[in-house]
Design a protein around this nucleic acid. Sequence first.
DNA 1: ACCTGAACACCGTTCAAGT
DNA 2: ACCTGAACACCGTTCAAGT
Lengths: 204, 204
Amino acid sequence: MPVEPAPPSAGRAPRADARRNRDRVLEVAAEVVAEQGAQASLRDVARRAGVGLGTLYRHFPTRDALLEALLRRRFELLADRADALAVAEPPERALGVWLHEFTLGAGAYQGLSAALLATLGDPESPLHAACLTMRQACGRLLSAAQRDGLVRTDVDAVDLFALANALAWIADQAPSLAERRDRLFGLVLDGLAPRGGDAASAGR
Amino acid sequence: MPVEPAPPSAGRAPRADARRNRDRVLEVAAEVVAEQGAQASLRDVARRAGVGLGTLYRHFPTRDALLEALLRRRFELLADRADALAVAEPPERALGVWLHEFTLGAGAYQGLSAALLATLGDPESPLHAACLTMRQACGRLLSAAQRDGLVRTDVDAVDLFALANALAWIADQAPSLAERRDRLFGLVLDGLAPRGGDAASAGR
DNA sequence: ACCTGAACACCGTTCAAGT
DNA sequence: ACCTGAACACCGTTCAAGT
C-alpha cells in the first residue's frame, strides 16, 4: 500500500516533545487571544510560545482549529448545562437562562461571535462541529418551550444561535454598546413569544 | 503666521488633476468594495485606479473616509426617507419600514454593518457623523411610535441602530443565514412592542 | 516523527523625491 | 499643490532542510 503522509499521531501516542509543544501553544494562545481577540496574530502566538511557526500549523492547521481547542471545554460545559436546566427549570426560563449564558460565552473573546457564526456556513471547520452539539442542546430546550406554547413555532435553533451571536457581536463593537447587551437580550427574548393570533395557550 | 501643512484644497477649488484622481479612486473603490467587501485591499483600489498609493491616502486618509464618500448619497436618501415616511405612514409602520430599508442598506457591502457599528464608539470617524444624521431621523420615527404607545419606552435610536446592523451582520455571515434575515427582522420588531404590563394603550 | 525558519505573496501606512 | 512608489513593519501559509 502507498504510505499516506499520516496526520499527527494517527492512532499512536504522540511524541513527548510534540505534546509539550502543543500544550505550550495552547497556553500562550489563550493569553494572546484574551489580549488581541480571536483574530490575534498566529505568528505572535508561535513567537511567544518559543516555537517555530510550522509547529503551530502542524498542531493547528487553521485558526478555527486553534479556537476550537481553546473553547472545547467551555462548549462541553454549555451543552451539559442545557440538560441540567431542562430538568431544574420550567421550559421558558431554562431556554432564557441558557441563551443568556451562551451569549456571554460568545463574548468571551473579542471577535469570537463573528468566528462562531461564520462557521455555520463552513461544515469543514472544527468550530462548526463544536457548535453543532450546542445547537442540538439548545434545540431540545427550544422544543420544550415550543411544546408548551411559550415560543413561536417558526424559529429554530439556528435562529437562536444567530441572534445570540449577534447580541454578543453588538457588545463587542464598543464599550457603550456592551452596557446595552442585557437589555437588548431581553428585548429579543420577548420577540420569541408567540404573536397575539397564535395558539399561545395550547396547553390550557 | 506659521504656514500650516493645509489639507487638500482648503477653501479653494481643487486642481483639475486632483479632482480627476479623486473621482477615479471613488469609482474604482465602488467596484472593488462591491467585490471584496468593506475590508477590501486599498492597495488594490489604488492599483486598479492607476493611481499612486499616496494619492489614495491623500484624498481618503482612512478607510472610513473612503467608505463615507461611497455611502454619503445613500445615507442622505435614507435620512430623507424617514421624514417622508413620517408623513405618509402611521408611526408604527413608518418605523418598521424605515428600519427594514436601513437593514437592507447596511448589508449593501459585505462587512459594512461591522464598519458602521464599530464607528459608534469612534467619534473621529467620518462614518460616525454620517450615521448620526440617520440616527436622528430614526429617532424622530421612534419618538412618534413611542408617543402612541406602540413601542416600549426603554429603547432609543442607538438600540435600533445596533439591532438593525446586527441583523445585516447575521445575513452577512452565510447565504443560509441571509434567507432568515427578514423573518428575524420581524421577530426583533415584535420585541419592540410594549410588554403586557406596560401602558400600551396610553393614547386611548 | 517532528521541528525550524526562510521564502513567498500579500497587507497598511508613511514620506522623500519628484513635477 | 499634488503625485509617485520605495521603504518599513507587519501578516498568513508553505515547505525544504534539519534532528
